[in-house]
Design a protein around this nucleic acid. Structure first.
Lengths: 335, 335
DNA sequence: ACGGGCCGTGAAAACGTTTTCAGGAAAATA
DNA sequence: TATTTTCCTGAAAACGTTTTCACGGCCCGT
């Protein structure tokens, strides 16, 4: 059914070598033969078989995107950034999500093997050791715990997770809050650990010891669950720093359902600045991660490395996160 | 660097045929040789080259996902559903978005050619004629204007776009609204046209002629722009049906910024029921499309067709959408 | 003891390209 | 005109697999 280069050659009355040369403009071909080949190719609707091609050449034109999962606005924005750059550079995206569980990580890596020219990996929940599996292709790690020394030719983009929650906590302390709580993300995730450390660091620096840390997660339900835990305590904290916007949104929603006013009774700060954070009422004060731009930058770094066979030592970029003050925070008892 | 089947064969002291047979369990091999091969494969970290493999066999283990774009919670949820089923069946996802502009559609199709075993296409903005480009592989169309007769072996999943907005409009009329407005989606999109027709149909059926239709879009900014247009009119409608949640959210936000109360002054209904719709204040009454489940079902249909080389005539599934009443709608002047 | 089936194995063909190699014709130089 | 260079072209090798084919040895029945 699908026509091959041989069909085109036969129809044009030339050899397959000539067809290849015409289609790839790889070297000069006589005017008349070129035209015959071009016509034949169009007539037959010929599309080169990419498998045969990449078997021979090094390049596939693909970029592998390895993510823990793909739900929510955070990843959606990330993909949007990636997609835009990919489109502009004629790359296609091979997305392998679902290694939320580390056991699936290996099969994720194998599924892109030899099918892509480079890799963008976001895997905050993996250990450097597991990450060593990645090999052979240029890679950009985003928000992933890679030691730069491990491999020389990879680039790394990280957000300032620690500095973010520290700044958020300092902001709350400055507003006058003394009794704070922290809702932590998944224990195994690298960014969740950093964010938690940022909170503790700020509290320690201010000499405040009256704080609670609750294990929560990166989803709304975790925030709701944490709310009931907090409500069961003798007295509520006046402010809560949350490791993630969705979690913060769930917390706010559940607290409000119990008659707690936000921010008058409890101030809340999230992390990520997903679009929903601006729509919620009260709108959510949060730490903005420009994840879409991160996606674009990551892919641009990767593509330039692929194109130029760039062997220069890997760069490590540390992006600041920005505190966006909205309605969910105020001085304590302000209402 | 990367080891081939020949390396494994040499190390194990057998022929490459034997290695292939051991690794694919394709037929019996002597116990001792099998063990030697397995050990050699592990030692060398051998992974078969998928390009060589799919050059020969029909299957690639890939599913192509062709989308207009990838931003927002709607697509994020869709991908989540797809990803889950793909993972469970050991398929990988090759995503080609960015054919928002029809001109890119062709290159999207070409980029997956021979790289996937099947296709899931969502392309409401394309014409049946353009869609004919898709060929050669099993395909499931989702929310896409395909005439079933065009090709026999494709499956189609559509939402009841028309019935959705009609039900929403009827609901508002029942509440007592008489002067309505409609914010339409992108003119070229098939679903946007259907949704618009649903609104008009309900108005006509109720004998109401006092309505405004504004061209908007599927993004927040379009809703904001529409708000200023509405505010410039002599008197506001008491209710607005909007073709999309994000657009509705933008509209609500901008109206409220101008002192318009929602729902007291203006009721608003969206479409899609994205997660943000529940978080917004007032929370958004909307039409729920179970897009995640749609993704799962679509891929399951596709995979069964691939696995069984299913030649049965294509099915067309029409999914109802459900009105979810929240805070953004009420009887007119209720406040 | 001898012929027929079965089992395990390696050689070789095939998949659809790109690229190297070498040869022939035409054009340029002497 | 003889010689070299340049240009264009086809044959063939290579990429890494899977699969068909054929061959030899073994077990079984007569």
């Amino acid at each position: 059914m699908a026509s091959t280069i041989r069909d085109v050659a036969r129809q044009a009355g030339v050899s397959i070598s000539t067809v290849s040369r015409v289609l790839n403009k790889t070297c000069a071909v006589a005017q008349d033969k070129r035209e015959r080949v071009e016509k034949a190719a169009v007539d037959l609707g010929y599309i080169p078989n990419p498998n045969a091609r990449s078997l021979l050449m090094k390049s596939t034109g693909g970029i592998g995107i390895l993510l823990p999962h793909v739900s929510g606005e955070f990843f959606s924005e990330f993909l949007t950034g990636l997609d835009e750059v990919a489109k502009n550079n004629d790359f296609f995206l091979l997305i392998s999500a679902s290694h939320d569980r580390a056991s699936e990580w290996q099969s994720s890596v194998q599924s892109v093997y030899k099918r892509v020219d480079g890799l963008i990996v976001m895997a905050p929940q993996l250990t450097p050791r597991q990450l060593n599996l990645v090999t052979d292709v240029p890679t950009v790690f985003v928000n992933t715990p890679v030691a730069p020394r491990d491999r020389q030719l990879v680039d790394i983009i990280n957000f300032d997770n620690l500095g973010g929650t520290r700044a958020a906590t300092e902001y709350l302390i400055e507003l006058g809050h003394r009794k704070l709580a922290y809702l932590a993300g998944p224990e195994r995730a690298f960014d969740a650990r950093e964010r938690r450390i940022g909170f503790v660091a700020a509290m320690d620096a201010a000499g405040l010891e009256d704080y609670t840390i609750l294990q929560a997660g990166y989803v709304q339900e975790a925030g709701r669950a944490a709310a009931t835990t907090l409500l069961a305590m003798e007295d509520l904290p006046t402010a809560v720093v949350v490791a993630n916007d969705y979690c913060a949104l769930g917390l706010a929603s559940e607290l409000m359902a119990s008659g707690v006013r936000i921010p008058e009774d409890v101030s809340i700060i999230g992390f990520d600045n997903v679009p929903s954070a601006a729509f919620a009422r009260p709108s959510l004060t949060t730490l903005s991660v420009p994840i879409r731009e991160v996606g674009m930058q990551a892919l641009e770094m990767l593509i330039s490395r692929i194109r130029l066979s760039d062997e220069s030592p890997g760069r490590t970029v540390n992006l600041p996160v920005e505190l966006v003050v909205r309605e969910s925070t105020s001085t304590p008892l302000a209402g």
